[in-house]
Write a protein that binds this DNA or RNA. Structure first.
Lengths: 368, 368
DNA sequence: CTGAAAGCGCTTACAG
DNA sequence: CTGAAAGCGCTTACAG
C-alpha cells in the first residue's frame, strides 16, 4: 500500500492541499494525534507515529501557515525593514539575515521605508499585523514600540529595542582621518549624513574627535551634510560647495559610499585631479571601487556578517527574552589610491572579497 | 462620545488587537454586518455604516490577515523570486514591482533562489503554501507549474506561465557588436552566461547573428561561457582565456554587467590597456560604470520599469485571467570610452539616471 | 437591510 | 497514550 501510492492517485482533485484531517482519516486516528505527532510532543506509540509520518509524506502535507498563525497568533516570519532596497549594503545585510533566519525555520519579510519616517511606521504596523515573530530595523526615525521583539541594525535608536548592532563608526572615520593626516593633510573636509540622525552624528563626532586629537581645529563650513536620503547627488553638491571655499580643503572624508561616489563625480565636474588636487576617502566600500579612477580608499565593513549577527541577536531574544545587547563590529581600512598612496605592484587588483584579501590589497600599495 | 474616546481608554489591555466582534459589540450589530460594511458590499443603512466606520477607526481595527487568508485561502501577497538578492539589477526590479503591487493593496514576499534550481523549487513551494495571490519569477531552472498565476521576468521559460517580460536581449547585443564593427574590430570575443539557459542562449545568438550579418565568422573558442552564477570571477577567467588565444580578440562583448566587471579586472591583471589593446563593452550597465577607468560602454536597461510592467502583467491576470502576454522592453546603448570612443567634452559625467540623461551622455562622446 | 451559523485548518487544555 | 471540543478571526451563503 505504501508502494503504489493509492492515496496520492485517488486524492480528490490534487488541487486541495492535504490537511491534518486528511492524514488522520488515512491513518485512522484523530487530528489531535496527528498534530501532536508532527510536533513530536508526547511520545506517541511508535507504530502510529510511523504511520502518521508516512501518510504525511505520502500526501505531501504542509501545514497551513495561516491556520497556524491564526491559532497561535504568531508567524514564522521575521520582519526586516531597510531604508533602501536598492542599496547593495542593505541587500548584503539581508543576505546574512536570510541565511541565519532560514536556518532556524523562519522566513524574512522585507519592507522598505524609503528612508521616510512615515513609511517606516507603516511598515512596522504592517509587520505587526502580520504577527511577525520579531523585527530587524534600520530606523529612519519612524520607530515606535510595537510589542514585538525588535533589534536595531546600522541605524539605531537610543535606549530602546531588544538589541542593537552596528559597526565601529567613529573609529572607522578616525582611521580615515589619521590616514589622511599621515599624508600631511591639515585642511580636511567632511561630507556627512543628514543632520539629526544618530549614525550620521556619530560619524561626524568621530571626524571631529580624530582631528582634535591631532590638535587641528575644524572650520564649521568644512562640515557638510547630505540630504535625508544620503544621495549621491547631495554628495556631489557637498563636494562642489567644499571646493568653492577659500581656502578649500585638500582632502575630503565622505561618511558613506554613495556620498563618496557623488563627491567623486563632483570633483570630476570641476576638473580636479584625485588625489593630486584633492584626496578623497570613504566610510563604506562602494561596489567596484577597485575599478574607479583612481581606485577609492575606503573603510570596508562586512555587511553580511552584520546581518548574520543581527539575526542571531533577534533569534536569541525569541528563544528567551533577555537584556538588551549592544554589539559593535569592527571595520577595516582598504588603502587604494584616492588617498594619495601609490601602487607598488601592477595596477591589477581584485575587489577585496574577504578580510584576508583586503589585507593583501593593502600590502600592494605603499604609502608615499 | 466620539470625542472623548472612551472605547480607546477602556480597552481591555490595549494588547489584544481589535476584532470585528469588538466593533460589532461597540456598535450593537452583528459581526457579519461589520464585515460587509467594511467591504462595502450591500449598502448598509447610512446610519450604521457611519457608526461602524467610526468604531473601526476608534479601535484602530486592522483585519487579521491570517484569519482572512484561512477563510479565503489566498493572501494579499505577491511572491517574487530573484536569482540573487545582492544584485543591484534585481533590487531595482523589486523596487518597481513593490511600487505597483502596493498601489494595488498587495505586498511583495521576496525569496531568493541563489541561482539554484532546487532552491527555486523550494521557494516556489513556500510561496504556494503561503497562498500568495501570484508569483513573479526569474527562473534558474527550477520552475514547475504550481497552480498560481505566474509571470516570468528577465529569465523566462518557453511555453509556460501566464506572462513573460524581458528586454530585447538579442538586439542589445547586436547594438554592441555593430558599434564595435564601426570601430573597425573584426576579431570580437564573447563572454556569455551559463550554457543551457534561455537568456544566455538568446544573447549568444544575438552575438552570432550580428557578426554573421557583417559576413564575419565566429571562431568557436571566441565564445566563452560563465559559471552558473554569472559570477565576476568567471568573467575574469573568460577574459584571461580569450587573451591567451592566438590570435586574441581585439574586442570583447560581455553578456552581463558582472561579467564585464570581471573581464575588466582580468584585463588589468594582464596589464592590457582598454580600449587600446582590447575594447570592452557590456550588456547591462554596472553601478558606477561612469567612474571606471575607462568609463564602460554598455547597453543600459530600465530595471525598475521592467519591474513595474511585470507587476502590471501579473495584476491583470489576477483581475481576470487571460492569454499569456509576451512583452519586450527596449534597451539603449550608452557610449562611454571602453569601446574606443573619446570624450569630446570634459571627462565629468554623471551616471545616466534616465533615458534622457543617457542621451546627453552619449552626445558627450564622439566616435573615433 | 441584517443576523445566526458554518467552516477555513490548526493547536491545546481537558478528559478519559 | 489518545480523542472530543473549543476557539483563533474572518467571510459568506442562507434565512428572515
Amino acid at each position: 500500500m505504501s508502494h503504489d501510492h493509492p492515496i496520492d492517485d485517488q486524492a480528490p482533485a490534487r488541487s486541495r492541499p492535504a490537511t491534518l484531517a486528511d492524514i488522520a482519516a488515512a491513518v485512522g486516528v484523530s487530528p489531535s494525534t496527528v498534530s501532536r505527532t508532527l510536533h513530536g510532543v508526547p511520545r506517541a506509540s511508535e507504530a502510529t507515529r510511523r504511520k502518521i509520518l508516512a501518510a504525511a509524506n505520502e500526501l505531501g502535507f504542509e501545514p497551513n501557515p495561516h491556520a497556524r498563525s491564526l491559532r497561535t497568533s504568531s508567524s514564522r516570519f521575521v520582519g526586516m525593514v531597510v531604508p533602501d532596497v536598492t542599496h547593495p549594503y542593505f541587500m548584503r545585510v539581508l543576505n546574512g539575515v536570510s541565511d541565519v533566519v532560514e536556518q532556524a525555520g523562519y522566513q524574512v519579510l522585507l519592507m522598505s521605508s524609503a528612508r521616510r519616517a512615515d513609511k517606516e511606521r507603516a511598515a512596522l504596523r504592517a509587520l505587526v499585523s502580520q504577527r511577525v515573530a520579531g523585527i530587524l530595523l534600520a530606523t529612519s526615525g519612524g520607530y515606535e514600540p510595537c510589542g514585538v521583539p525588535l533589534v536595531f541594525y546600522t541605524h539605531v535608536e537610543a535606549d530602546t529595542g531588544d538589541g542593537r548592532i552596528r559597526f565601529t563608526d567613529a573609529d572607522g572615520i578616525g582611521q580615515l582621518v589619521r590616514h589622511l593626516l599621515e599624508h600631511g593633510h591639515t585642511r580636511i573636509g567632511f561630507i556627512g549624513g543628514p543632520a539629526g540622525t544618530p549614525t550620521a552624528q556619530e560619524r561626524r563626532e568621530g571626524f571631529r574627535t580624530a582631528l582634535e586629537n591631532a590638535w587641528l581645529a575644524v572650520p564649521g563650513d568644512y562640515l557638510r551634510v547630505s540630504d535625508s536620503r544620503w544621495s549621491g547627488e547631495s554628495g556631489t553638491r557637498a563636494a562642489l560647495d567644499l571646493l568653492a571655499l577659500d581656502p578649500p580643503p585638500t582632502a575630503i572624508v565622505a561618511a558613506s559610499d554613495m556620498l563618496a561616489v557623488g563627491a567623486m563625480r563632483g570633483l570630476r565636474q570641476l576638473g580636479k585631479r584625485i588625489p593630486e588636487d584633492v584626496a578623497l576617502v570613504s566610510f563604506g566600500d562602494p561596489l567596484f571601487a577597485d575599478l574607479f579612477e583612481p581606485p577609492l580608499t575606503a573603510v570596508s565593513h562586512d555587511a553580511q556578517a552584520l546581518g548574520m549577527r543581527a539575526a542571531e541577536l533577534l533569534l536569541d531574544q525569541l528563544r528567551e527574552p533577555s537584556e538588551r545587547r549592544d554589539v559593535r563590529l569592527p571595520v577595516e581600512l582598504v588603502v587604494r589610491r584616492s588617498c594619495g598612496c601609490t601602487a607598488s605592484a601592477a595596477t591589477g587588483s581584485a575587489q577585496p572579497a574577504s578580510a584576508d584579501l583586503a589585507a593583501v590589497v593593502q600590502r600592494q600599495y605603499e604609502c608615499r
